[in-house]
Write a protein that binds this DNA or RNA. Structure first.
Lengths: 195, 195
DNA sequence: TTGCAAAGAGAACGTACGTTCACTAGAGTG
DNA sequence: CACTCTAGTGAACGTACGTTCTCTTTGCAA
């Protein structure tokens, strides 16, 4: 394990700690976490990670993770059987889920999906819909519309020059709003968690 | 402003700080952040927030935010028509998704889904599977297995005491490996982007 | 009006914090 | 081999840390 791989291994453990505690560990905890016997080793490691752009200093002088800290490996292609794959492969592509899904953070929100009216579109109850706030949408977009003071997730369709809301489940009817259709936002992504 | 609204206001400022620094502030910083002149006020506030379930203690004894702390990024309530949703409600908290999906960052990677063999499970071609690297899995888990030197995403099933791979599409056959089944990882999440 | 509960003030205490220094061991290069 | 660079050791220091205690103020209920 060369020096780069070693620092990556250290970084991985810090990332795991962050996932558990939602905060970077103190020097003393980093010592036991990484197997160091001195704090200065920690200090130098952090400086190295700073040069590599994984952490930085906040306005208050504390260490904070950068965006790069949250990027992860994106495996592109099939891998020969038996070949050991480090989840964090040095040199392979990294990827930040949030940046992938969210283009306008200030204008995007997550809404949990209820019901199974969109099940044929692969949208299940409990999934999180990534919604970009907008008042208009295009034919075929999946949108959050406001019907009877409730959010409704449906595909936007056209029928005789009027907008309608199409479920992706034959058990549900097409919604044909009498008044103007009020669109809350457009679905730009989906997040699902298993277990 | 009653006591609940006050604490909610306090919580909001702590959430803003967290969004900036990706870490809960210290007592001293909470003092200036909230306008307190004593640390004990901070201590009592944190105890109150703990009772309300917004923060808790980590194994190391530190204060850490709970899942509920991040709930403001989710909008589950029906929103009255015409009511503007401020960008502030969404927050600049762009790592919520990461933390939601990924528990072991150093051991987790993303693999693009190919084909439609899992379509009935709502997993489409082009989706990103969030995979936790592991060599074993439980019956019913969706796993990445290595078959013929290729990644295969299937549900892990049992058949007469042997593990088999179940597609979620009647057009595909059940895979019954002759040798030992080699599991690459377990699917813990799914990410999809529209457009 | 009195009594009580709770929010916050203020001070004191022991400790864990991050920084810095000089030093050691090992790897790579000439 | 000697030279150098670097990761890690180990100790020391000043300070900011979280906790805990008593006291004051405020609001509400009896």
């Amino acid at each position: 394990m060369n020096e780069f791989e070693k620092d990556f291994d250290y970084l991985g453990r810090i990332q795991d700690y962050y996932a558990d505690n939602r905060c970077l560990p103190s020097y003393a905890r980093l010592m036991q976490l990484l197997g160091f016997a001195s704090k200065s080793a920690v200090s130098k490691l952090l400086t190295r990670l700073q040069l590599q752009g994984f952490v930085t200093r906040s306005n208050d002088g504390d260490w904070v993770p950068t965006d790069r800290f949250f990027e992860r490996t994106l495996s592109s292609q099939p891998v020969p059987a038996g070949m050991p794959i480090a989840a964090r492969d040095v040199g392979s592509d990294t990827f930040a889920i949030d940046q992938y899904l969210i283009e306008q953070p200030s204008n995007t929100l997550l809404i949990p999906v209820k019901g199974d009216s969109m099940i044929d579109a692969g949208i299940h109850a409990g999934d999180l819909a990534v919604i970009e706030r907008r008042n208009s949408a295009n034919n075929g977009d999946i949108v959050i519309a406001i019907v009877d003071n409730e959010f409704t997730l449906k595909t936007l369709g056209r029928e005789q020059g009027r907008y309608v809301l199409l479920p992706a489940n034959p058990a549900y009817p097409v919604i044909r709003p009498k008044a103007e259709l009020e669109i809350f936002g457009v679905m730009v992504g989906l997040v699902r968690k298993y277990r």
